[in-house]
Design a binder for these strands. Structure first.
Ligand SMILES: [Mn+2]
Ligand SMILES: [Mn+2]
Ligand SMILES: [Zn+2]
Ligand SMILES: [Zn+2]
Lengths: 130, 130
DNA sequence: TATCAGTTTAGAATGATTCTAAACTATTGA
DNA sequence: TCAATAGTTTAGAATCATTCTAAACTGATA
């Protein structure tokens, strides 16, 4: 798609066929939470022949351009989030469940910050069971 | 210390000299956030000769007995928290900073839960910069 | 004190991620 | 058009926190 190539170029990324295929999947309109492994599986399902190294490189490139958010919620497995607005999550480690909370959550009652520190962002994770 | 041996026994843990030394350090009255590596370094500083495997085993044993909380905040490194009350954190990945928020935070404006799910706990992480 | 379940330990294994360095390709200026 | 080059892809090695293995050790019990 011409659109996706321009999208990549406008983010200082050469529109290689690998990046085009990955971007087409990730930015198809619906928000996604993917791990490198899950994305790689999906790309294999599509017979793209894209290597796992390229999946990692591309996710990292997109992240550095601000096209993805990076989530480190549980142990050892990084999620990349196509929803780059500030938002929160329902999360279940056991069920590999990750759902956006786009509502305006409000967190009140915070104590004063440590000296010489400023808040970067407030992250709310609603851990689910059952 | 007799107290610590009883404390361990009352939690179905044999008071070996390794566990006694680790418990003495962890439960000395001030709340701590330790990684296996940081705890191992501290124990080496004290010339205890406790192996890293035992540090992992003991942290895990204490966690299973509910004597520690487990925190997976950033990438790849697990923190164990001697504060077992429900609480939140100021956190800086870059500075390895982790400070308890014991105030009664309030989170309001949550949307309805996904079907057939219930909230286990709400975790608030205030990410700090600078 | 003998027995045995529980514990400790060194070292191997695991697994997500990063690194390396060689082959490949999109871009561009002549 | 196309050579030159900077950027990209890739297989496989390396990294590193953590877990596993299985053999040696020890606290509890009778
Ligand atoms: Mn890891
Ligand atoms: Mn790991
Ligand atoms: Zn999200
Ligand atoms: Zn804490």
């Amino acid at each position: 798609m011409k659109d996706i190539k321009d999208f990549l170029r406008s983010n200082s990324l050469r529109p290689t066929k690998q990046r085009v295929l990955i971007a087409e999947y990730l930015f198809d309109g619906e928000n996604k939470h993917v791990t490198a492994e899950k994305l790689s599986n999906e790309l294999n399902r599509r017979r793209t022949g894209i290597s796992l190294a390229t999946v990692y490189n591309t996710l990292h490139d997109f992240y550095e351009r601000g096209l993805l958010k990076k989530l480190s919620l549980g142990l050892d497995r990084v999620y990349f989030d196509t929803n780059t607005d500030h938002h929160h999550h329902f999360y279940s480690d056991k069920e590999q469940l990750l759902i956006d909370i786009n509502n305006k959550l409000k967190v009140s009652g915070l104590p004063k910050l440590p000296k010489n520190k400023k808040t970067n962002k407030i992250e709310v994770i609603v851990h689910l069971d059952n």
